[in-house]
Design a protein around this nucleic acid. Structure first.
Lengths: 238, 238
DNA sequence: CCCTCTATTTCGCCA
DNA sequence: TGGCGAAGTAGAGGG
């Protein structure tokens, strides 16, 4: 199920790692320096760090703060152990990049057999849009839903509808406070909509919007509909 | 420097964790189920997982694939150990959320004293813009740089310049292939620029651009300047 | 705090 | 494989 190697020499570490890579979830705690070269480049000087090697080739290096790793390599990385100098090397093509972790002193190595469990996440944007599809009146009376994920050359429209006057309504949803970027996104779709449908409306649906975004939105003749899906659900329940 | 506890009972684990939290970099490998409730919500069923607790309160749970953790809590999280049922609880206000990791069987716990090393990263967008500030002719002859990070209500312009005809040039830089979103971003600034300066140009600077983005850009009377900074550097060197 | 934007973003989906 | 956009995005920087 798991095994631990404490203060191994490089020869022991080499054996252990070679047998475990791509088979086990590995952690290494060691003094190391790190060179990354690829999409960007970085150097990390000698210090103790926690290294994780996953079954899919993900390579992750943590220091003692932050949720984000100091260095990493995404899934699909080719991982090599070099004996001299003792190095964990992660190589990727496309983009061409490599992470070179040179180990100076190894405190411990662990390996473990992990079987993924079930995982379910709720409350993302999909749920938000789904709620509106089920009940278009949340947006406005008489709104008809035409298409979800309507594809245009200028991006993918969350929801395309038609109002009670037969005018197309292009809707962009944000689960959180809408920003300038959300307005721009909607604007892009409306530029296309005008070419495609002639007159049409652009509607940004979100729980709130920043002041600058609201100004821009008005400038561009777009509309904002305040909608907080969680609040609405409780409203329906009560 | 480090210590390891193998197959502890809950009482031992409690002692160990209580003494280590916020002092040491901790890893726990254990069978656990996890409930997250906050910005979204998730459930993970019983399975062996690797848990990391950092000195700044970061809480990270990994399974055996992906660079991203299965669940997490960012820095600043309040971490509590509950005895019955044995649980690592991470609580945050603003946003209000909690991560509840219930441990069923603990394989090992490690703790270690980590001193952060030096770290230096190069090759991000800042370097890209800096290269142009140093040598505006990379963009076009006669270009004058007026301001870096020019703030407008519609966003922050990477670089504001003036061309040889005295026309303002609003520049947006992308280190990688420019997308629709990059065009929109530039367009936002130019909308403001027209109000502020009257006539002005919008220039997207990137190593390449997607076809749809290029079409949109032309539609909006914006310009694209192909520039690959790494290539340019080698060019100057050679 | 909020706003804005980058990121070695990662990840998923779809043509 | 590339385009596109969401993410419990995280993290940085400025007002």
């Amino acid at each position: 199920m798991f095994s631990i190697l404490q203060e191994p020499d490089f020869s022991q570490a080499y054996q252990f790692l070679s047998n475990s890579i791509y088979n086990r979830l590995i952690t290494v705690f060691a003094d190391c320096d790190i060179i990354y070269e690829g999409r960007a480049s970085s150097i990390a000087t000698l210090a103790p760090r926690l290294i994780i090697i996953k079954l899919d080739g993900s390579l992750i290096v943590h220091e003692n703060v932050k949720r984000e790793p100091l260095n990493w390599q995404p899934p699909g990385t080719k991982i090599l152990i070099i004996k001299e100098p003792f190095t964990i090397l992660g190589i990727r093509r496309k983009p061409k990049e490599e992470l070179r972790i040179r180990l100076h002193n190894i405190y411990y190595i662990t390996s473990a057999l992990v079987k993924d469990g079930e995982f379910k996440l709720e409350g993302d944007e999909i749920d938000f849009v789904n709620a509106v599809i089920k009940n278009p009146n949340l947006i406005e009376n008489g709104l008809k839903i035409i298409q979800r994920e309507y594809r245009t050359p200028y991006g993918i429209v969350d929801l395309l509808g038609e109002d009670s006057n037969g005018i197309k309504v292009i809707m962009e949803f944000k689960r959180r406070r809408a920003s300038l970027q959300a307005v721009s996104q909607l604007h892009r779709y409306v530029i296309y909509g005008h070419k495609q449908f002639g007159k049409c409306r652009g509607l940004l649906v979100a729980p709130s919007i920043t002041e600058n975004a609201l100004n821009l939105l008005r400038n561009l003749n777009l509309e904002f509909k305040q909608l907080n899906i969680k609040a609405k659900i409780t409203q329906f329940v009560s």
